[in-house]
Design a protein around this nucleic acid. Structure first.
Lengths: 344, 344
DNA sequence: CGCAGAAAGTTAATCGTTTAACTATGAGGT
DNA sequence: ACCTCATAGTTAAACGATTAACTTTCTGCG
């Protein structure tokens, strides 16, 4: 692959002149410019970005740290990041921690967790990325995360424990509120909830939203209407079974994610009831299942792509030296209405 | 961030010596080594990989080109790639073409397609990656893909049109064969097939496997038992409906992917039949739905992680100067047995 | 004692850019 | 004629590592 030196020799000028032609930062006579461009056309010259990075101390590469690339929202978030960065001439260096997403309960063991995250950050820092986006799956109460010296870092999806850090998240609380409101507007008065793992802040926020909607409508929430699942299909089956066995079973079930909603479907059908005629079910996440269940599941779609896009935007702003006025961005979700609910 | 120069000054030696201590390629007296290591400990020294890359003409970065990171097998493949590369000290630069995966029919418009792919390859080449893994979703009949000069390239998931290129794929044909065999062993004699989009080689290979199993067992395949869908849920509903309306309806349906199998579930339940007592259904892909349907769907799991891992391995071999003996690797799939089939 | 050879360092070139500082030339103004 | 200034180009020093080639010192052996 040709270098500037060869182009310079071929055109009978100095490398500096070639550089000037390419950068356009200094004026070059039309004739020399033409000669240089022709030489470039003749060879397979490619600017060596490595040399440029070394000289300029800027790689135009952003490190994206993910806990598990196979985790559901992750590819979409990365997509959003990628799209935004590409437009600004940046590229994405991916670092995958391969942390099992399902270890909700071990989530509290922050010590070894932060160790792994810090190793990932190190790797990106070593690669001399210009900035880092950390796609975190769970809000951090304590931030044991070592902010690499002098590399801007923004959080996507979940929040950093330190409110000074910039984070881009979605509105768990309001989405759960709106979804519950939707059921209430359909005259449901017995609305039960199947929650995700109690350790996760997502579950707690969605619970808050649900409670607020019920309270506002003056509807009672008997404790047996709040069932704690573990985000998995089977806990949906189990908890829905328990709800159906109640003396006063709910007329609507709000499952905190789609697999658990699918579990409700199984339990409900097994008991001979029909969805939505006898009982309404709604989910959360808008996974592929939601549209493949029968009847189609009403659920909430997370703004994953936007989360990634916004996080990337904010990072680029910081790279331009701007300080982010509001470090926490919370994006709204969208309710996807299908056929799993019916008014009473 | 400190440099070798500063470490050298601090330890009273030359940069060369510092380099020797770090690389271990030349002997250094224990005392100087100790002094240098202490200086490093005192500062925040980090090897500048950019400078190293420039000098060594090697970045230790592999470009991964994906058509759509949100496409289902993609994250797992990337995970496999990542895992393998990480062990060898390489990192992943991601390039996402954001080609809509669903444009099956436009798939034949190769001209503009190759343009986009080539732009993606250019971007990676510009970044001076050491090698490229192209995660392609569809086999290429003609390869319009411009192999970037001197950068090793391997295909993952789908095959390159040129048999000389190294590709790592999975065994569509045999998996469909085995799945059909499973149904036949359960004494099903009327086994119908709901195929994916006719344009795709995956659909055609799976069809071949199915046909072979039926032929071997001496079972007739009436033309109306082969239904062409488009990989989507609704075509499953539709085609299963058509099958059930036949004079001699099948006792088992093999859907070429899980969403279409889910469509079968809907059509079958609507018609009042039970799965698996009245009719067996199997799918393909082992998506999340498979375990969230009721009853659980028997399906085939693709070796996505292994595909990525193997592709990365082969690329690293090529980087080490080895030539790959067999450029085409076809990995076996695994049948996941759940509760959607019953012997006759 | 003399010499070979190993051990421990240093010097300086190199990778491919960018860019401040400099030179040379010519145009324009007074 | 002289000064100023803009234009077009060159030179050379960075950026931060690696490494071949060289120097110096020491060890061991005949």
């Amino acid at each position: 692959m040709a270098t500037m030196k060869e182009i310079a020799a071929l055109s009978g000028v100095s490398v500096a002149t070639v550089s000037h032609v390419l950068s356009g930062k200094k004026s070059v006579s039309p004739s020399t410019r033409e000669r240089v461009l022709q030489s470039i056309g003749l060879t397979n010259y490619k600017l060596n970005t490595i040399a440029k990075s070394l000289r300029m101390n800027k790689t135009h590469i952003i490190g994206v740290l993910v806990e598990d690339i196979c985790g559901l929202p992750v590819p979409e978030i990365v997509d959003g990041i990628n799209q935004c960065l590409e437009e600004s001439g940046y590229q994405v260096l991916l670092s995958n921690l391969r942390l099992l997403q399902k270890l909700y309960n071990q989530y509290e063991q922050l010590s070894q967790y932060t160790g792994i995250v810090n190793r990932g950050l190190q790797l990106l820092e070593d690669a001399r990325v210009d900035g880092i986006i950390y796609v975190a799956m769970h809000d951090r109460r304590i931030d044991g995360i070592h902010q690499p010296v002098s590399i801007p870092l923004v959080y996507a999806y979940a929040e950093s424990g330190d409110p000074a850090n910039v984070s881009v998240t979605y509105d768990n609380e309001n989405s759960a509120y709106e979804m519950t409101r939707l059921l209430i507007r359909q005259n449901h008065r017995q609305v039960a909830l199947i929650a995700g793992h109690a350790n996760t802040s997502a579950a707690n926020r969605r619970l808050t939203g649900y409670r607020q909607a019920m309270d506002e409508a003056g509807l009672p929430v008997p404790p047996e209407y709040i069932r704690w699942g573990d985000w998995e299909y089977h806990s949906g089956v189990e908890q829905a079974g328990a709800l159906l066995a109640l003396a006063l079973p709910p007329t609507a079930i709000f499952a905190m994610n789609d697999p658990m909603a699918a579990g409700c479907y199984a339990a409900i059908k097994r008991s001979g009831l029909r969805i939505p005629e006898d009982i309404s079910v709604v989910g959360f996440d808008n996974r592929e299942i939601a549209s493949c269940l029968f009847p189609g599941l009403t659920t909430v779609a997370l703004p994953n792509k936007e989360i990634g896009h916004t996080a990337a935007q904010q990072l680029l702003q910081r790279l331009d030296g701007l300080t982010i006025a509001t470090p926490r961005t919370t994006l709204p979700c969208r309710i996807i209405r299908r056929d799993s609910t019916l008014p009473r």
